[in-house]
Amino acid sequence: MNYTLHQLEVFYKVSEKQSITKASEELHLTQPAVSIQLKNFQEQFPIALTEVVGRKLYITDFGREIAEVAERILNEAEAINFKMRSYGGALTGRLKISVVSTGKYVMPYFLSGFMHTHTEVDLLMDVTNKLQVVESLEKNEVDFALVSVLPNHLKLNNVALMPNILHMVANPKYYEKIRLSKKTGVGDTPLIFREFGSATRGAMEGYLKEREIILGKKIELTSNEAVKQAVLAGLGCSVMPLIGIKNGLQSGKLKIFPMKKLPIITTWNLVWLQKKKLSPVATAFLEYIENEKNQIINADFKWLEAYGNN
């Protein structure tokens, strides 16, 4: 056999995603390049690693076993690289963070200074919804997670970073006022929701339940950015975190509509499992956060104060 680390990486990613298209996106390669590497890797085995049923790719039992070995080999190879670099005296290793989707407007600011200081550290930040973030914590796949609602069933340590403020917003070009009532009817304002599993959706549903509001027209979208664009386009209104709509508010294309029981204020928390043995990189990052978080908030998030109590 004469397979390469690159072929192992390609096959492992294909097995993880069960898709050549998704694997190519993750690896920043073209689909033909991934297909060629997968074919070359397969030719070294007498048993099929993958199979296609209909138009869907599946990993065979043998392929899953090879993928597990490939993951171990790739991790060991990565460890060798980190050890080599650490002999130069630099902090080396990988920092893995899972972030709820709205957190993408927050976490980069708390990472930037650390990554500029420690140039030998690799960063893997997965941006997804709350359910998947919690799952990554449960499986011990990440060092830290950024959430605005703490999961009750996990034993976690946490560092509170900053407030997460949610207001009812709409495009004033389309809405002079927002009508929400305990009974539906013509003229009720359409509400735009995030997908199931989103913490923002949970906050919005909790608000409606508390006020005993019965929904009229409802729109559901699968990302915070999609919700923002829909609100900008006048499709409806939504309870949204201010952190993601700064430009819309400052340009006047979005407006906060004062409503009873709003704003909803939660807290962005950096969390990790209590049983987690933090790596030197994770420990250094935690120290950085505890020392620098106030300066970061004052430098990058002071603008929130202008909208916090509208």
Rank of each mutant, 00 (worst) to 15 (best):
R94M: 12
F45S: 03
P108N: 10
T184S: 13
A70Y: 00
K104V: 12
L262E: 10
Y207K: 00
N129K: 10
N75T: 13
W268V: 03
I80P: 01
F110E: 03
H118T: 02
F257L: 09
S136E: 07
E141L: 15
F257H: 08
Q42D: 06
Q229I: 09
E120I: 02
L111P: 03
K261V: 03
P241W: 02
M240R: 01
G206V: 02
N164M: 15
V281S: 08
T21Y: 15
Q229W: 08
A199Q: 07
Y12G: 10
G308T: 11
T184N: 09
G88E: 06
V134H: 00
W268G: 03
S223G: 07
F11Y: 15
S112W: 12
F110W: 05
E65Q: 14
R194C: 13
G54N: 12
I36S: 00
N298Q: 13
F114C: 07
N157D: 15
G63D: 02
L221W: 03
E225S: 08
L111T: 01
Q18S: 08
L191I: 15
G216F: 07
Q37C: 12
M240F: 05
S98T: 14
P108Q: 04
L286H: 01
H167S: 14
K139Y: 04
L137H: 03
S148C: 08
G89T: 03
L137M: 11
G248P: 00
A282L: 00
N294L: 12
A33L: 08
N140L: 08
L49V: 11
L273S: 06
Y174L: 05
A282V: 00
N140I: 02
V10A: 13
E195P: 10
G113Y: 00
S112G: 07
K260H: 08
L221I: 10
K255W: 04
I97W: 06
K246T: 03
C237D: 01
P151V: 05
N157E: 15
L286M: 07
K183V: 09
E25Y: 09
E205Q: 15
E76M: 15
A230N: 07
V100W: 02
L242K: 03
L5Q: 09
R85I: 01
P241L: 08
I80C: 06
F144D: 07
L49R: 01
K130R: 14
P163F: 09
F285S: 04
R179G: 09
K39F: 13
F82N: 07
T117H: 13
T128V: 10
G234S: 04
D143P: 04
G187R: 08
K182H: 05
V186A: 14
N310V: 15
H153R: 15
L273K: 12
S35Y: 04
S101K: 06
L27I: 08
F196P: 04
Q250R: 11
